[in-house]
Simulated scan of single mutants.
Amino acid sequence: MSEKPLLHISDLAVNLGGRAVLRDINLDISPGELLCVIGPNGAGKTTLIRAIMGLLPLAAGKIELQGGVGYVPQRQDADWSYPISVEQVVLTSLKPRFLATAAQWRKVYQALEKVQLLDLRQRNIGELSGGQKQRVLIARALVSQPELLLLDEPFTGLDHPNQDLLAELCQQLKAAGISILMSTHDLAQAAEIADRMLILNRRVRALAPLAELTDPQLWAESYGVDINSPLVRMMSALIEKPTAVESRAEFRAGSGKEQK
Score class of each variant (00 low, 15 high):
residue 4 K to F: 09
residue 4 K to W: 10
residue 5 P to M: 08
residue 6 L to W: 04
residue 7 L to I: 08
residue 12 L to R: 00
residue 13 A to V: 04
residue 14 V to R: 00
residue 15 N to A: 14
residue 18 G to P: 04
residue 18 G to I: 08
residue 20 A to D: 11
residue 22 L to K: 04
residue 27 L to Y: 02
residue 28 D to G: 05
residue 31 P to N: 09
residue 32 G to A: 08
residue 34 L to K: 02
residue 35 L to A: 06
residue 37 V to F: 06
residue 37 V to D: 00
residue 37 V to P: 02
residue 38 I to P: 01
residue 40 P to E: 07
residue 41 N to R: 07
residue 51 A to K: 03
residue 51 A to P: 03
residue 56 L to S: 06
residue 59 A to H: 10
residue 62 K to A: 14
residue 63 I to V: 13
residue 65 L to W: 01
residue 68 G to M: 05
residue 73 P to C: 11
residue 74 Q to N: 08
residue 75 R to C: 04
residue 77 D to K: 13
residue 78 A to V: 15
residue 78 A to W: 14
residue 82 Y to C: 12
residue 85 S to G: 05
residue 89 V to T: 09
residue 90 V to T: 01
residue 92 T to A: 08
residue 92 T to V: 02
residue 93 S to Q: 11
residue 96 P to S: 08
residue 96 P to A: 09
residue 97 R to T: 13
residue 98 F to D: 12
residue 101 T to V: 08
residue 102 A to K: 14
residue 109 Y to E: 15
residue 112 L to C: 03
residue 114 K to Q: 15
residue 117 L to I: 10
residue 122 Q to W: 08
residue 123 R to K: 14
residue 126 G to K: 09
residue 133 K to W: 03
residue 133 K to V: 04
residue 137 L to F: 07
residue 138 I to C: 03
residue 138 I to Q: 00
residue 139 A to Y: 02
residue 141 A to C: 10
residue 142 L to H: 05
residue 144 S to K: 14
residue 147 E to W: 03
residue 148 L to I: 06
residue 150 L to C: 03
residue 150 L to F: 02
residue 152 D to V: 06
residue 152 D to L: 07
residue 154 P to M: 10
residue 157 G to V: 09
residue 158 L to Q: 03
residue 158 L to A: 05
residue 160 H to P: 07
residue 163 Q to L: 09
residue 164 D to P: 00
residue 165 L to C: 08
residue 166 L to W: 04
residue 168 E to K: 11
residue 169 L to E: 03
residue 171 Q to Y: 12
residue 173 L to H: 02
residue 175 A to L: 12
residue 177 G to D: 07
residue 177 G to H: 09
residue 178 I to C: 11
residue 180 I to R: 00
residue 180 I to V: 13
residue 181 L to S: 02
residue 184 T to W: 06
residue 184 T to M: 06
residue 185 H to Y: 09
residue 186 D to H: 05
residue 187 L to R: 04
residue 188 A to V: 15
residue 190 A to G: 12
residue 192 E to V: 13
residue 193 I to N: 01
residue 194 A to L: 00
residue 195 D to G: 06
residue 197 M to E: 04
residue 198 L to K: 01
residue 199 I to Y: 04
residue 199 I to A: 04
residue 202 R to F: 06
residue 204 V to F: 01
residue 204 V to M: 06
residue 209 P to G: 09
residue 209 P to L: 08
residue 217 Q to N: 11
residue 219 W to D: 01
residue 220 A to G: 07
residue 220 A to P: 03
residue 221 E to I: 06
residue 222 S to T: 09
residue 225 V to A: 01
residue 226 D to G: 11
residue 228 N to H: 15
residue 229 S to H: 14
residue 231 L to E: 04
residue 233 R to I: 08
residue 237 A to G: 10
residue 237 A to P: 00
residue 238 L to C: 05
residue 240 E to L: 12
residue 241 K to F: 13
residue 245 V to I: 15
residue 245 V to Y: 05
residue 252 R to P: 02
residue 257 K to F: 07
residue 258 E to G: 06
residue 260 K to T: 15
